[in-house]
Amino acid sequence: MSRGLVTGGALCALFLGAALLSLVWTPHDVAAIDIAAKLRGPSAAHWLGTDHFGRDLFSMILVGARVSLAVALVAVGIGAGIGVPLGLLAAARRGGVVDELVTRANDLVFAFPSLLIAILITAVFGPSAINAIVAIGIFNIPVFARLTRGAALALWQRDFVLAARVAGKGEVRISVEHILPNLADLLIVQATIQFSLAILAEAALSYVGLGAQPPTPSWGRMLAESQTMIAIAPRLALVPGLAIVLAVLGLNLLGDGLRDLLDPRVRRARA
């Protein structure tokens, strides 16, 4: 196993652990405002200190991890859940009208700057974590659809697919039973990468006030709120900033490591 994979895995485990931990326990209530205790440095009671409302920064980071994770998980789920079947369908009907439609629709969505459209969606339907999920999810669809179609097209030319057709299997059964399992590695790696992008997108949307709404903490909004206080309490910006960096770095390292591990070409070259 590569060092990248181990580091990435460890960071992701930390991220996941923080998110899960926040479900059962946080040192303090994240919504509890205690103005008298504002802008305190790290101490035994507040491990990372408090913010401008006297809320416990460590607790906010834990809950923020959960919000990031939930948004990214569902958004990537939407992308893969819709994108992969579309890609399989397009590959099965390659050259046909359906293929053309799916491919062009993909190009269309790709042509828009994704974050701008996400801002549009959340601005029209109102800022909330749910709308952020939908906005980010929509832009994950073409990524998965295109990847699936490209790889599936190559698979459709292979002998084992021909054998399956000779055996009388239809397009759907071939796609599900023969094509999809051979794409799994590729999709897992892509999902990891998309996951890190979704976390960044969620942070960006929260930063402009269109993500999870107060009092639910979110890393992006913590950054935005710390902005004017960067000179008096740089900790307020550093902590959520580092959290985002570590989570995204961990997911990218994990993705790279997994690709090295799972990609048949790389595997064969190593053997």
């Binding site: 919504a31 509890a32 405002i33 103005i35 409302f53 709404q213 107060p214 009092p215």
Partner: peptide, 16 residues
């Protein structure tokens, strides 16, 4: 945000 927290403390649910 502060007012919302204070109102929640007396049992008024406030969405921002």
């Amino acid at each position: 945000e502060i007012v919302a927290a204070q109102l929640r403390a007396v049992g008024i649910d406030v969405a921002i």
